[in-house]
Design a protein around this nucleic acid. Structure first.
Lengths: 204, 204
DNA sequence: ACCAATTATTGCAGACCATGCAAACTTTCT
DNA sequence: AGAAAGTTTGCATGGTCTGCAATAATTGGT
């Protein structure tokens, strides 16, 4: 990677970090883009070359599409052949980025802290998830061979995303938390829904 | 209702109508608040006395909490005692406002047209649903007697809202569409999820 | 090491959104 | 009619975000 590219990454990072730390310190509406840019040592105008909005800098680089390889495998009926298990696998690829694990966990914790402090940001997060939802629905439709007019894949994708959102809330992003734990939590959530809405249909 | 109150309602309506029709005509970013206000024959400043943002005027007065009576009944275990059926009843109260049915259907159709034309609005809609979701989760927790730390009500509420969003998309809001039809659609969606995630767990 | 091409940064002007405040106006109540 | 309460309006202000053109930095070839 050349110098130019490295500098861009650094600037981007600096802007995000500045946005996050200033916001946690003073609250979102007491921080201007001008201040964020100054903290990152660039001009206000440059801020907008990197992020369309102030919110964007705070929400960071959440992937909006699943890993291409994971998607292909899911569409093809893999990796296990069990629909729910394979769905979980795809969902997990959204939670795991290319960064190293420690950085990623720290980011997640920071992002959660931000959401708690500034609930307005939840709205932006939901919007991003909505994009993911569309991708996921397309993948489900492909895998199950649903016809064009069939909107059930949308339904399944929507509820799966609600499971994922829910799971993210209950994760700790701590050292000791393993991928297997995440999978177990998502699995438990799906099971709970199956029981709540399923054929036997008990309460709750 | 006094003159003052009637005038306020009229102004509010005029602003909403102006916002909607101008947006459908030219697209959201080619319409300024100034123009909306002018169309409704009030000052720009007055616009902001009625709506916090331009989006707010477009999204209209969607209830953010369920009908208080319906909520009480649900929490108390009613009206039928069957969890899913009663959940559906609550969800439907969100879809039915105090206006007359024809007006409401027209509003729904307009709103859908808006969403199609201006996908940015979906974000605001999702945010509103998120508030509803919180209310619903609280009601579910109360009904099922879940303990304070139990987050399963949140999960159920989230997935129920995804069912509701999905159902709204597939409704026609036409003359011939009855409440019973709506209920049947929601029921089918829940059943589909139960089958997808449930004990038997077939595909799709 | 230099030059030319490409790409990034910056300042500036401008449109628009949104809020606070105080003056002018309208409705309501007695 | 006149005071009280509530609404509308204009004005000033601060903040977000965009387009444009000038400047500066990186890159790749010679």
């Amino acid at each position: 990677m050349g110098l130019r590219e490295r500098k861009k990454q650094a600037t981007r990072r600096a802007l995000q970090d500045a946005a996050v730390s200033l916001t946690l310190e003073r609250g979102l509406e007491n921080v201007t883009v001008e201040e964020i840019a100054a903290e990152a040592d660039v001009s206000t105008r440059t801020f907008f070359n990197y992020f369309a909005t102030k919110e964007d800098a705070l929400l960071g680089d959440v992937p909006e599409t699943p890993d291409e390889e994971a998607r292909r495998e899911f569409v093809g009926g893999g990796p296990t052949g069990d629909f729910v298990e394979d769905l979980i696998t795809v969902l997990i690829t959204f939670l795991v980025s290319t960064d190293d694990l420690a950085t990623q966990r720290a980011d997640m914790r920071l992002r959660r802290e931000l959401m708690e402090r500034e609930p307005q940001l939840v709205r932006g997060m939901l919007a991003r998830f909505h994009n993911v939802e569309m991708e996921l629905a397309a993948a489900i439709a492909e895998r199950t061979g649903a016809s064009a007019g069939d909107d059930r894949p949308l339904l399944v994708a929507a509820s799966a995303m609600s499971v994922m959102r829910h799971t993210m809330k209950s994760l700790h992003f701590s050292e000791s938390e393993e991928t297997a734990d995440v999978r177990a939590k998502i699995r438990a959530a799906f099971r709970h829904l199956g029981e709540a809405y399923g054929p036997s249909a008990p309460n709750g």
